[in-house]
């Protein structure tokens, strides 16, 4: 029970067994990306090859889906950065009536099941008679990405000493200069982290996307079609590895950028 004591054998086994449970399946996918078997999920793979990476890269449908997903994620992240930072700036400095309600409104999109957000957006799209498009996807994604930026920015705003801002003002800077030269540099890594997490979240979001996408095909939608009706198993394996890499890199960057924040927000997403 002492915090510096050695863990019992059983605790060790349970903890590392649990972590293995989380990661072995991902390793298996990486292995399958190299298999020579293309009809079944036979284990162990009869042979290994790099052929499928070449095939996947030459596929126009995959490249288009990838490009669309990158554009959606970039646009949703940009919108979330602006809205999340503004909200955090307001909420960090003030107490006002209805503050709790604002927090709740921002948390709801990730607290409610994705399908509720999805069908709600679809209902609005139908009632407003808007044609689903790139922008309806971005709107949906931005809605649940705001809270991620907000959490990170809020945690950082609370750590910026009030005295720095007062010193800047005393030295003759106006509010905009103070924001530009004092607040923003302090905030930068938190925004980077929030933006990166929002990007990763948006890049492989599927639940909300299927309702708002209309005829557009993001990479997760392409992937989901393969899940339900497998046609190109080996190519799907390669895309899976690519998705793991594209989402892991921003998350690692986000972790590096905020590891000093004691209460690095966003983890409760």
């Amino acid at each position: 029970m002492r915090s510096d004591g050695r863990a019992s054998r059983w605790l060790r086994l349970a903890a590392f067994g649990g972590l293995a449970f989380l990661h072995v399946p991902l390793l298996i996918i990486v292995l399958y990306a190299f298999t020579t078997e293309d009809k079944t999920y036979q284990f162990p793979p009869p042979g290994l090859t790099l052929h499928w990476f070449e095939v996947a890269w030459s596929r126009a449908d995959i490249r288009e889906a990838l490009w669309l997903s990158l554009q959606v994620a970039a646009s949703a992240t940009a919108a979330a950065l602006v809205l999340g930072t503004m909200a955090a700036a307001a909420m960090a400095r003030a107490r006002f009536f209805g503050r709790e309600a604002v927090t709740l409104a921002m948390i709801l999109p990730i607290a409610l099941p994705g399908i509720v957000t999805g069908i709600a957006l679809l209902s609005a799209i139908k009632l407003a008679e808007v044609e689903p498009s790139f922008w309806t996807i971005v709107t949906g994604h931005a809605t649940f990405c705001v809270v991620v930026v907000y959490n990170n920015a809020l945690a950082r705003f609370r750590r910026i000493p009030r005295s720095l801002i007062e010193a800047s003002m005393d030295l003759g800077a106006d509010g905009f200069q103070t924001f530009r030269y004092v607040v923003l540099p302090q905030l930068a890594t938190a925004l980077l982290a929030g933006g990166m997490l929002a990007f990763a979240l948006s890049f492989d979001e599927i639940i909300v996307t299927t309702f708002t996408a209309g005829h557009e095909r993001t990479l997760p939608i392409w992937f989901m079609n393969e899940l339900f009706r497998p046609r190109d198993r080996p190519v799907t394996n390669v895309v899976a590895v690519a998705v793991i890499l594209v989402t892991a890199v921003p998350i690692l960057l986000a972790y590096r950028a905020t590891r000093d924040d004691a209460d690095a927000g966003g983890r409760n997403g």
């Binding site: 298996i28 996918i29 999920y41 492989d204 997760p220 899940l227 989402t247 892991a248 997403g269």
Partner: peptide, 30 residues
């Protein structure tokens, strides 16, 4: 390292992680 090992799968690759089990649970699978 442990924190990252938990955080990475929380944030990413939901579909891929579901897909992995298709490979694992298949009749001829692992």
């Amino acid at each position: 390292a442990m924190y990252l090992a938990v955080m990475l799968p929380l944030w990413s690759s939901y579909l891929v992680r579901v897909y992995a089990w298709r490979l694992l649970l298949a009749k001829e699978g692992i």
